[in-house]
Every structure is written in structure tokens, then in C-alpha cells.
Design a protein around this nucleic acid. Structure first.
Lengths: 245, 245
DNA sequence: GAGTGGTCTAGACCACCCG
DNA sequence: GGGTGGTCTAGACCACTCG
């Protein structure tokens, strides 16, 4: 009890949450095991029950614990990897799995929005957008053609960025510097065949399977900030996602 | 104020949540608009602030609202369709989009688990599993070959079910009747080519693009209940998912 | 009936943002 | 400084599960 030394600025429920997480990691609490009751935990940590609940709720949202009304709170079996349900960008993700990521700029220009992009970005057809097309490499193998469309009126300043920076810094970092925090994305996935142009860029044969992805990215206030066509080499790319009922 | 007529059994925070949701639907609250402060809402509804917060938090999790510390709570722009981040089954999903769904049983049998399925289902290699292979139709066009593996020790009783029921009732309904509530699934997606056997079943040419999906389904206590290989016709099937940071 | 989580109160103080 | 959300308390009663 009382492993909550008063650390500056860290909320109690966060400390409790991390304390429980650590006990699970250290296997002081094993899979399927029942936690002490909320009342008991409140007493142990010297806080109110609502505070304990807040910490526990976070861990339930992460899939690390589950509750059974009238029974107790338990450690869930496989810590279902939430990573798979989190939205990550190409560079973050490659870092995480130890792949060397690289991008090369194919083109950046201002265009009139076509219907589909305009709709996704909440613009009217023909409004200016900035189109940024890159080829992305994993360990020096070309794996993805990335064709992003972003509203000109929000992000015109990206045109001043030098190519070097465009290739190494992710778009989302730039969005944040403009005050838009990326929160979610809706993506549609299909299997397709590589056409001639994709085949040339990715050094594959025409007709090779491609994992095609259309993605709209939203900031936390709901503003759509990016609409992207994404063509991934079928033999080099897979996407893992977690869904919940 | 006080549109909370005391309805039996419905928690206050649910009523508040639905009341706010309805105001958004009715456009009494429009996109980007600031809600009354939590204190004010508490006064309006005649409840404590914590109760209001609980209702609001639900709507934030749904993406309908967002909070800005020190500023206020606002209506988010496009009600990002949470449907896309929810785990649905083939029949539910078809219903929702108005497609006539049908399944025909290709085979059901008991097998020894191969390494991959065993690993996913937390079994040891060679333990018995039940393998259920179906061909699924959307509006009478074959779109998916579904090859499910479920632990024999949990679900042996499915073998007594008649074929008619197997084809019309979803597996998950059966799982629930055995006490396992489906909570989440991890799915890996790839683009592939149809091999000869898939091509024959789905009435397409060999080499046609296939959206290949490997899926492990978990109950809410974390027990893996299903491991499935899923082959979807590229020209007739797309998958939409929502991801969050 | 005992034990658990689910809901709820009526306050409090703090941290943040803005004018 | 005034208004907002973020955290927290010390209780309370209810609903559910189980033996």
C-alpha cells in the first residue's frame, strides 16, 4: 500500500493505473486473476473509490482488465495489442518494428480538388488542394505509393518547406504545427492489381496484387485534414487492425 | 431543463447523454458550437457535475463531442461514423447496407490444430479444433470464402447443430450461448491472388486480386474463440475501418 | 446475505485559456 | 481575473452474482 509518493503534477489515478499495469507486467497479478475490490484498492492507495475506478477504467479501455458486475475486476488474458487499433504513421510504425523507413518525393503541386477528394475534405469541387505524392521504402525496397490531398486554405505554408524536410518529416507533424491534432482516420481497403505506372514505380510486374487504401484523416475537432490514396505492394505489406464490438 | 422524467431503471447519465445526442441530431446544437459548461448542464438537468461528465465522456468516446481544457466542450464536425470501427459480422453488416446475405456450408470437421491456428487460439499444436468452411454470397454473388477454426474443447456442441442453422445463424450467436461474449478481433490484411481452388469456388479467374484476411476473435475476458482465414473477392468486397491515435 | 461493481451526490481545489 | 474543464473526496444506495 501507499506506493504513491507525492510526485509533482501526476494525477493520482494515473499513478494508480500505472501501479496496476506494472503489477501485471511483473506478474504479481496474473491472467485471469481477480483484483482486490475497488473499496479495498481505495483503502490500500489511500484515495477515494472514484479515483481508483478512473484508473481501472483506463486499463479496461486498453483491454488489460475486464469487469464483471457483482463479481469483480480481473486481469484479461492476452493483453490484446492495442497498437493495432491505434492510428500510426508510416515512420512511427516502421520505427516500432525495426524497419528502415524512407520516402522520396514524386511531386507536390496545387490542384483543383476532384469530386472524391473534395467530398472527403469537406470542400467544394474545384477548390484548391495541395497534392503530395511520395514513394515510400522499407529497408530500401519500394513498398508504397502515397498520394495525399490536403486543403490549400489550411496548409498553404507547406509549399515553403524544402524537399528534404518533406521527405523526412511526417505530414502530421506539420498539421500539428498548424494547430490540428490528428485524432482518427477512416480507411477503405481493397485488393487490386498494379497498373503500368505503379508497376514501374515499385519495380514490380503489372498485375501484381496491390493493397489499395483510401484514407480520410480527421483532427480532433472533426476537421478532415488529409485524403490519401495509398497503393501497397501485396507481397511486402500487410496491415493489422483491431476492431471492437 | 428537466427533460429527465424519472424513467425506471435508466441511469441519469444515459438520459443526459441521449438528450444531448438528440439535440445534436435535431440541430439545436450545431457543429462547432459550444455546449453549456458542465456546471450549467448539471444545474439544468438537476444532477451533479460528475454525472453530466459521465454522459459527455461517452459522447466524446463516440467522437460526437470534444473537450478543450479551459475553453469548453464542443460539437465535433463530421460525426465520424463509429460503425466503421465497430466489429460486425457478415450478416449484421449486410443487413445494415441492404445486401442479401447468404452462406453455404462447404465443410465442417474436427481436425488437429496446425501451428498457426493453435498459436492464435492459445492451444498446443495438434489439439482438436473444429473447422468450418463456408462460402458467402452477397445478393447471390459469391464474395467470400470463410475458413473458421474454433477450439473443440469449448464448442464441441456445435457439431450437433443442423446444417440449416449453421448456414443462417452466425457463429458468434452460438459463442454467446456458450457464455463467451465476442469483444474484439485482430485482423491482418493483405492483397493476394486467387489460386485455382478459390477461383473455382468464387467463379473468378485464377490470379484475380483477393483481399486476404487473417482474423483472431476474442471474448471479453480475453479468451480467443475463433481464428479465421478469409478470402474476399477484390472486385466485390472492400473493408472500411476507423482508427484512432 | 455478503461481496462486488454501477450510479450518484455536493461539494472542493487546481490547471488551463482567454481577454 | 473569470470561466472552463481536470481531478478528487467521502460518503450513499442500488443491481448483480454467488454460495
Amino acid at each position: 500500500m501507499r506506493d504513491l509518493t507525492r510526485t509533482e503534477g501526476i494525477p493520482l489515478y494515473v499513478k494508480i493505473r500505472e501501479s496496476i499495469r506494472q503489477k501485471i507486467a511483473a506478474e504479481e497479478l496474473v491472467m485471469g486473476q481477480k483484483l482486490p475490490s475497488e473499496d479495498e484498492l481505495a483503502a490500500q492507495y489511500g484515495v477515494s473509490r472514484m479515483t481508483v475506478r478512473q484508473g481501472i477504467t483506463d486499463l479496461i479501455d486498453e483491454g488489460l482488465l475486464y469487469r464483471r458486475h457483482g463479481v469483480g475486476t480481473f486481469v484479461a488474458y492476452p493483453p490484446v495489442e492495442r497498437d493495432h487499433s491505434r492510428l500510426t504513421n508510416f515512420f512511427e510504425n516502421s520505427d516500432a518494428i525495426g524497419i528502415k523507413a524512407k520516402a522520396s518525393l514524386i511531386m507536390i503541386e496545387v490542384e483543383d480538388a476532384k469530386l472524391k477528394a473534395a467530398k472527403a475534405l469537406n470542400l467544394t469541387e474545384g477548390e484548391p488542394i495541395i497534392r503530395i505524392k511520395t514513394l515510400r521504402y522499407a529497408d530500401d525496397i519500394p513498398v508504397t505509393v502515397h498520394d495525399a490531398h490536403i486543403p490549400y486554405k489550411l496548409f498553404a505554408s507547406i509549399l515553403d518547406m524544402d524537399q528534404q524536410k518533406l521527405e523526412t518529416q511526417h505530414l502530421w507533424t506539420f498539421f500539428e504545427s498548424c494547430g490540428y491534432r490528428v485524432k482518427s482516420a477512416v480507411q477503405k481497403l481493397e485488393a487490386r492489381e498494379a497498373d503500368e505506372s505503379l508497376a514501374r514505380l515499385m519495380e514490380i510486374e503489372e498485375g501484381t496484387p496491390i493493397l489499395y487504401k483510401e484514407r480520410t484523416v480527421y483532427a480532433d475537432d472533426g476537421t478532415p485534414v488529409e485524403f490519401t490514396y495509398c497503393y501497397n505492394r501485396g507481397d511486402r505489406y500487410s496491415l493489422t487492425v483491431t476492431l471492437h464490438r
